[in-house]
Amino acid sequence: MSKSLQTKHRATKEQRGHYLLRLFMAGNGLNSQKALANLRNLCEEHLNGHCTIETVDVVKDFQAAVRDNILVTPALILVSPRPRVMILGNLSDSPKVLAALRLSGRKS
């Protein structure tokens, strides 16, 4: 009981912060489109829009992929708040994505 309370408490705190998310996509690939759609939903439902989504098309900008060592796409980096997290895939498994973004336990 106390654990879930704690989680809730932390999530509430982080809600105040603004989320900066960088999504690496590969052109108009199906998985990339899915990832973007999933990420937009997630922002609306869990962050009330308190987030900025940067998209990078690695096909157009290979140096960006080099900079962040993006080997697979789609890939999402939580730039802030720290610590930085990297999630690989089309983000279809939302409980896992929420946990990784430290948003678990937040009401949708």
Binding site: G27, L71, V72, I87, N90, L91, K96
Partner: peptide, 26 residues
């Protein structure tokens, strides 16, 4: 090209190695 995953990436859903191909291709 140092193509090493750090190992603490979270996996969620399907992905492919387009990023790697882009880097190598570049």
């Amino acid at each position: 090209v140092e193509a090493r995953l750090s190992g603490d990436e979270v996996l969620s859903g399907d992905f492919d190695i387009q990023g790697l191909l882009t880097i190598v291709g570049g």
